[in-house]
Each structure stands twice: as C-alpha cells, then as structure tokens.
Computed example of a mutant assay.
Amino acid sequence: MSEAGNPDAPRFPQGRGIVVGVDGSDQSMCALAWAVQEAERRRTPVQVVTAYTVPVFAASSMDAGYATVDDSVVREGAQAVLDQAVQRVAGRHNVELVPRVENGDAAGVLLELSAEAELMVVGSRGRGGFVGRLLGSVSSALPAHSKCPTVVVPLSCASRLEEAGVTAPTSKGQPSPRADEVEKVVVVGVDGSEQARMASLVAAEQAQARGLPLRVVCSLPPFTGSLAWMPTPVDRDALHSEIMVQLNAGKAWLQSHFPDLQISVELLDGPPVEILIEASRKAELVVLGTRGRGGFAGMLLGSTSQGVLHHARGPVLVVPDREDPRLLDRARFGPMAS
C-alpha cells in the first residue's frame, strides 16, 4: 500500500504543491527540472516521488510457496535513485523539495497523490532505473485518470532545461530548441467539445500567469475515401467559414473571462496530431483535453491526445474533465458545436 495514506508522511493541503515522478531515467530528470522551474514560478513546493514494488518469484525447489526479494534492499535502491535526482536540482531554485519513496505500483501511487496536488509532472516513456519503475506506462495512464492537470515532459526538452543534466536527442536531424529559442506562447488545441473548452480555460490561466499570449488552434483534417459514401460533396470553404465563426465566438467568450490576455485563433489544414506535435516543438506549453467528442473535425479524441503525448517535442499539459461555472455562459457568445 502507498505511504500516501501514512499520517506521518509529508502531505500538502488539497490543491497545493506539484508532484513529480522520478525513476532514474533521463526522461524523469527532464520532468523534475521542468517541475522545479514551474514550482518556483508558482511559489509552491515540489514532492519528488519514486515508487517501488517487491517482486515475487515462484519457488524453484520442490517446496511449495514463493520467494520474495528483501524489501529493504529494493527500498534502498529506490532511495538512492531519489537522492541522486534531488541532488541534481537542489539549490538551483528557491523551491522546497520533499522527497518521498512509496511502496506500490507507480501509476497507482501517482494517481492517489493527484487528489492532493495542483499539478502532476512525469517524463515521457521513462525506462525505469530499478525494479518496478516503468514511467512509460505511467505517462500514458496518469493524464487520463489524474484528479488534477498533468504535464508530460519529453526528453527533447533537455536542451531547454539546464538542470536536467542530460542531452536532448535530435529529431530528423534537427536539434531541439534551446530555452532562448522557445516561442513565448501557450497553445491550446480545441475541437468544439466541452473538454476542449475546459482545456482552453486552463490554457488561458497558464498564459496569463506566465505573461504570454494564448494561441487557440483547431485543425481541419484532409477528407479521405472514408467519406465517399456521402450523398453530396462537402463544401470545404463553407465548413471552414462555419468553424471560424465558432472559433471567434469561443475567443470572445475566453476574452470575457480574461480581458487583458492576448488571444488569437487559428484554423489549420492537416491532421491534428501532426499540427500539435509541430506546435510543441517551440511553444512554451501545449494544452489538451483528455479527450474530445469530435465537435469540429474529430480533433482531440483520446487517440489524438495519446498521439501528441507520445511524440511531442515540448511539455504538454493535459486537463481532466471537471465542472467550471465559466462554461455555462459560452452559448451567449455565439455558435458552438453541439
């Protein structure tokens, strides 16, 4: 069972603090470096968490039963990984670091902690520094089920993060941008769904807190042979105009809640995954909903969010479904996808 239920373990009040999962991989070091920078901006503490499980093996002798690895040995290995990670970022920022070693499945531990955190941060496709640590599965499971927003930080962010202490890989022969080459903008992908509207509110909050403009992006994927059954040709220009009306209405709605924020909207032709992956390469932050319902053109379905997370070149914030009173007045500002 996770030590998160232990009253003696360090805890933050609900809705406070950033929780970051580490496992000794370069990916998790990028996540930790990003989390520390974000925590300094928010003036909030960071829980640096690693988890371990004790493997059980079937007995090899004729005797019935099972053999287990000594818990203390595995825990010491986990503690060593955690200590090394914390030492690499300690003292670089004015941030309180709270190290935690938890006994349990990594995804389960982090999901439990998400109920008391304001933000979860994990690396993308970590490979695990010791037994039982596979952040690759965590970075897929956590955003979809977390109780708070989750940021997935890919290894390609290393060139932006001096504290990571690792080398960013190249993509198609092109190096990842350095911190001074990152475009100072927050990008949010929308598709007309309620989930996307929630994501746009959180994206606007992030942009305003950072003093950056917000770019609202929607994609119109190319039509394929799958639409050959339709009785009449699709008027793409008319569809484009209709979507732009909805996007501008959405912009007006956002502007009413964030009057001082610079907001722009873009409707781009192309597959949504490719468009958002390209945006992630230089944007300060890309924001997505956990899933959409195809309000515009099927954008931001669960598969789209997964596709972006697995191939993003920069940090991606995934916003879970939740109720927000600001969603109730969207219809007053003009047409919206039903």
Rank of each mutant, 00 (worst) to 15 (best):
Q208I: 11
G307M: 07
N94T: 10
Q306T: 13
W34V: 03
M230T: 08
P99Y: 01
S72W: 00
Y66T: 15
F57A: 12
S171K: 13
V166A: 02
T150R: 11
I243W: 02
A117Q: 03
P259A: 00
R41D: 10
H257P: 04
T167C: 05
V202K: 11
D260C: 07
P13S: 08
Q79D: 03
S256K: 13
H311S: 13
L142G: 01
P175K: 13
A67F: 05
Q255I: 10
G250W: 00
P221M: 03
A297M: 08
Q255M: 05
P335R: 11
N94C: 03
F258L: 03
D83E: 11
A279V: 00
A31M: 09
Y52P: 05
P10R: 10
M336A: 14
M120Y: 02
E183V: 12
R322V: 01
V81T: 13
D70T: 11
S137Y: 12
R322G: 09
A204R: 14
Q246S: 11
P222R: 09
A331L: 12
F12L: 15
L110R: 06
V265A: 08
S200T: 13
S60D: 13
P233Y: 04
G104S: 06
V20H: 09
C148G: 08
A312D: 00
K251D: 00
P154W: 03
E3M: 13
E194I: 09
V186W: 07
A204D: 01
P45M: 04
A283W: 11
E38W: 10
R16D: 06
Q208F: 01
V286I: 08
T167A: 11
V101K: 07
V182P: 02
E274R: 11
S156L: 01
P221T: 09
